[in-house]
């Protein structure tokens, strides 16, 4: 079935993706993948980069009958590493796009930090674990 094929392709790509991303992030307790959002790259960020628990997001997507494509676009090069259409946004709009996408979904699902909770996501790598429950 095409769906099954797509899913396994996704799983494969995700593992590849993880290898790339996890390299920059520190591993917290258990075996959850904790990732840092590295796109867009901001020269002098006012706040720390966003760090999030990828495993939790994968699990949520899984439990709600969706898949990687919920957050990642498949391109000719494979699964996009950046979130969804972030790369397609105008340069000045990318941060806003991510803010809206992340907190919009959090809001709909009733889980995860709201837009006001800046420092729930923008955390220093060192203090990881305290907030990223």
């Amino acid at each position: 079935m095409p769906i099954i094929t797509l899913r396994s392709a996704c799983a494969f790509c995700c593992s590849l993706l993880l290898l790339v991303l996890v390299a920059t992030s520190s591993q917290s307790a258990e075996s959850d993948e904790i990732l840092t959002v590295s796109f867009p790259a901001i020269a002098n960020p006012s706040l720390p980069k966003v760090i999030f628990n990828h495993t939790k997001h994968v699990n949520y997507v899984d439990e709600h009958g969706s898949d990687c494509s919920r957050c990642h676009r498949v391109t000719k090069q494979g699964l996009s590493t950046a979130f969804s259409d972030a790369r397609l946004q105008k340069a000045g709009n990318q941060v806003s796009y991510l803010h809206q996408s992340c907190t919009g979904c959090h809001s709909k699902s009733g889980q995860g930090p709201a837009l006001v909770q800046c420092r729930a996501c923008h955390v220093e790598a060192a203090s990881l674990g305290a907030n990223n429950k």
Binding site: S46, S96, H99, T103, L115, V116, C118
Partner: peptide, 21 residues
């Protein structure tokens, strides 16, 4: 303040420059 400008922009569409933290 940065957080305020983000919140303001996302809720009202008004975009203001922000202060260095």
């Amino acid at each position: 303040l940065l957080g305020h400008t983000v919140l303001l922009e996302e809720t009202t569409g008004i975009s203001l420059p922000s202060l260095p933290p």
